[in-house]
Design a protein around this nucleic acid. Structure first.
Lengths: 340, 340
DNA sequence: CTGAAAGCGCTTACAG
DNA sequence: CTGAAAGCGCTTACAG
């Protein structure tokens, strides 16, 4: 029985035996951690192919105290951007044969963050990426041990040595300036909850107003879950004839605001200009087609992984960590018909 | 130096020493794999708390040949549903302290599926969930070894012993019947690419037409990425005055079709009734508010994890696998104004 | 009920 | 350049 026992999956010892070398030699061949005789290389390569051998990521993780994986810590706010960013990170991970895991933190359960982070770290990921768009993200950062490869996505510029941010604040500024440029005295803002970062569309809106010396109206806060609140905000705005331009926190909010405005008899963009943010798929189809701001979250994710990978490689090679870096993924305004 | 060496993280041996027992006893305490003397239990519990000990998920994975993790295999089609389902699975995983990983397969790179699945399996997940909405998902199934806990999400009923499907076909049927019930002679259908499953909204549409003895018009196929194709489909439909009812493959497609219809001078719902699918956040805000069909993907994910977890537990306990099961997560039609 | 031993599949000093 | 040994942190027979 023993002699016929077919291992379901070959292990390094099998490769070694077939190639007539020791396991450590196979390991060294695999990891390039030492030179291996040319002829043996060939035999090993052959044995690997023959057996269809794949190193056990788990055993490596135990020996190395590090798994070939990335863990992203995201929060449940902003599913669209989170999801798009995840896809970018995963794409990068796949290209390097890294496992991709995500643990979602809840903004409403800040007390659980520490435990969740520690649990996720229990799998010894080679590096982590944390999305710092809100407090849960910021909290997670506290529990990432020093020396662990880390890149922050979002947050304030300069928050971590390795960071990729978007041009959200600049986007808010640009949209607002655009509106101001069309002669509006000021621009109203309907926003969803903001995170701790200062790189927000809302701050961009304020920047533009300040620069132009325009009055800064009070912000109308609405819930992300219940668009009806944004409709109400639109109605409130519609009742005041001094409002002629509105910067909505995102495209869903924009269409809700437009509906509210119309309920009060205002037309868009004739009476009131409205712009959104995110450029969702429906934006060009809306009537009027939404002027919005498009960000490239996929690219943010890909860049974040690339940045992380560099750190991991350097660490493994015992080299100095790469130079700290802040990358900004540029978005752009998409001009359509909802503002004039 | 040695005596002062502070382990960054305590291991089982540390707990054992502090509690005055052996490591296996701690292990048995932790896993409930044998009874442990009451007094020792207390000492162990105390030591664990004192040290803040967390078992290494990696070491356990190596010893058990199984990691406390779920791996989901998803495809890049249908980001909305995939993302929502993932959230449900992850929620379940978190509740059981399981790691959650996802590997996204590409419908356009079927040849890579085997390799990607095998790589992901290299982490020895305790179980896998595959979303079988298209060919890549079906292909992935081929490489999941027998005996590995598995649940299929989507696909045809009965495809696997453990499966959770949605009521998509029934939804298509219901929407179509609804339209037929309003006196339309038949219902046109604008659809995006279909997967290999028969549980599709398109089949539901066909079912309803067949049952009613209504003519079955040719399907207008459009791309998911380029909504402009759906606008064109709407225009094509608008040019024929025999079309009075359209079942669009999803909400984005519905608004695109409505736009196309209007470009040809048809009004909705007066001249033509249009219904969507998915009930996206913007659906109630569209003019006219979209009649649509809402599915609960979060719940599908949660149920899938629960079903998987049962299998895992049974397997670990050496019990018979749970009875095979097919669960359907029911969706429902949301009647609004776009059809009459 | 519980400990000593062996093993999971790798990697990394240590010799040579 | 390469092998024997030891170790990563657990778990599971095997004895008692």
């Amino acid at each position: 029985m023993a002699r016929n026992a077919q291992r379901s999956t070959p292990v390094i010892k099998d490769v070694a035996k077939l190639a007539g070398v020791s396991a450590p030699t196979v390991s060294r061949y695999l990891n390039g951690t030492a030179n291996v005789n040319e002829e043996k290389r060939k035999r090993i390569a052959q044995a690997i192919k023959l057996l269809g051998y794949k190193p056990s990521i788990v055993a490596r993780a135990l020996a190395n105290k590090e798994m070939d994986s990335v863990m992203v810590f995201a929060t449940n706010s902003g599913t669209f951007s989170t999801n798009m960013t995840n896809i970018g990170v995963e794409r990068g991970a796949q290209s390097k044969n890294y496992l991709f895991g995500v643990t979602t933190l809840s903004e409403h359960h800040i007390d659980d963050v520490q435990q969740m982070v520690q649990m996720a770290l229990g799998s010894n990921p080679a590096g982590v990426i944390v999305y710092e768009y809100d407090h849960a993200g910021a909290e997670a950062l506290r529990y990432i041990p020093d020396g662990m490869p880390l890149v922050i996505v979002g947050g304030n510029a300069g928050e971590g040595p390795y960071q990729v941010i978007n041009s959200e604040r600049e986007g808010g500024r640009e949209m607002t300036k655009y509106l101001l440029g069309h002669g509006h005295k000021t621009v109203y803002h309907v926003a969803r909850a903001e995170g701790p970062s200062s790189n927000t569309r809302t701050n961009g809106w304020r920047d533009a107003l300040t620069e132009a010396g325009a009055p800064i109206p009070e912000i109308l806060r609405v819930s992300a879950a219940d668009l009806q609140e944004a409709v109400e905000a639109g109605r409130a705005l519609g009742r005041r004839d001094d409002v002629t331009a509105v910067f909505a926190g995102n495209d869903e909010t924009a269409i809700a605001v437009i509906n509210g405005l119309r309920e009060e008899g205002r037309s868009v963009p004739e009476d009131v200009s409205v712009v959104g943010f995110d450029d969702r798929q429906f934006a060009p189809l809306w009537k009027p087609a939404l002027t919005s701001y498009r960000q490239n979250f996929n690219e943010m994710g890909e860049r974040a992984f690339a940045m992380l990978y560099e750190q991991i490689q350097a660490k493994r090679a015992g080299e100095e960590p790469p130079q700290s870096r802040l990358e900004t993924v540029q978005g752009r305004m998409i001009v359509r018909d909802s503002a004039q």
